[in-house]
Design a protein around this nucleic acid. Structure first.
Length: 256
DNA sequence: ATGCCGGGTCCTACCCGA
């Protein structure tokens, strides 16, 4: 099974990119983040013609996640369990495929709106930890994949490109990411590439792509039994060099 | 130089991203 994630920074701007990419990469399941539209604005017809069924958790202008799949799936959750019911941010989709739970996330950045914004990020991560623990307790194999907005270690961003107070690297953020690892989840990219510097995002500004000033913030975490089946995990770096790219590239994992 | 580009929207000045 081939599972992918891609923060597309507006699906309406990136529809042709995604169509071409799924044609050449043939993922079984692709999670999208920052689609920046409501479900009614999502270009589902084109993806359907390409053999993919879509499920959309949309929001006007900001956030928004979706899943495209060419294998049958069942939608389990359209919001992160534990968040208040009036939370309007579209950042979570959970589906089940063949007894495996697949969770696509767009984790809050945490740099906006001061202390409140950072507290929201940490609370979101706490609920994600709780969801992972519940699935472990139920012995359900699962993948959490998407834009985590976390650089887990100092190897995961270009030297000097982030201040130590940035919400992507702050100790409280990394502590919660480590909690996911310590409960037994495997960081798929790092399991395959333990030492290389690997990025999944390059800012549009200041020639970040040309100077290779990037971040590794898009991740796939695997529960123990799925980690044993991990074959490959790679960002598709070439996408960043194409015309009108997203600032993130796709990440693809293969389970044997 | 935390807003240099590139999305979005109460349509064009301003909010947001990492």
């Amino acid at each position: 099974m081939k599972i992918a994630t891609w923060n597309v920074n507006s699906i309406r701007q990136r529809e042709a990119h995604v169509l071409r990419w799924i044609g050449q990469t043939q993922p079984d399941v692709l999670f999208l983040q920052e689609i920046k539209c409501e479900a009614s604005g999502f270009p589902a017809l084109g993806f359907h013609a390409a053999g993919y069924k879509a499920e959309v958790v949309g929001q006007k202008a900001y956030n928004g996640v979706a899943v495209l799949a060419r294998v049958p799936f069942r939608v389990v959750h359209q919001a992160l369990p534990g968040l208040p019911p009036d939370d309007a941010q579209a950042r979570y989709i959970e589906v089940e495929v063949n007894g495996i739970t697949l969770i696509g996330i767009y984790l809050p950045n945490g740099n906006s709106r001061g202390d409140d914004g950072f507290a929201y990020k940490l609370a979101w991560m706490d609920h994600l930890v709780n969801r992972a623990q519940a699935l472990l307790d139920a012995d359900i194999p699962f993948v959490i994949i998407g834009d985590f907005n976390v650089c887990p270690t100092d190897d995961d961003f270009a030297p000097g490109s982030l201040s130590p107070t940035d919400a992507l690297v702050r100790p409280e953020t990394r502590q919660r990411f480590r909690r996911l690892l310590w409960m037994g989840l495997t960081d798929a990219i790092r399991a395959i590439h333990p030492h290389r510097s690997i990025y999944t995002f390059w800012d549009y500004q200041a020639g970040a792509w040309q100077r290779d000033i990037g971040l590794r913030i898009d991740h796939a975490l695997l529960s123990p039994s799925l980690a044993e089946q991990l074959v490959s995990a790679d960002p598709d770096k070439d996408e960043r060099g194409l015309p009108q790219p997203s600032d993130h590239v796709p990440v693809v994992i293969r389970l044997g």
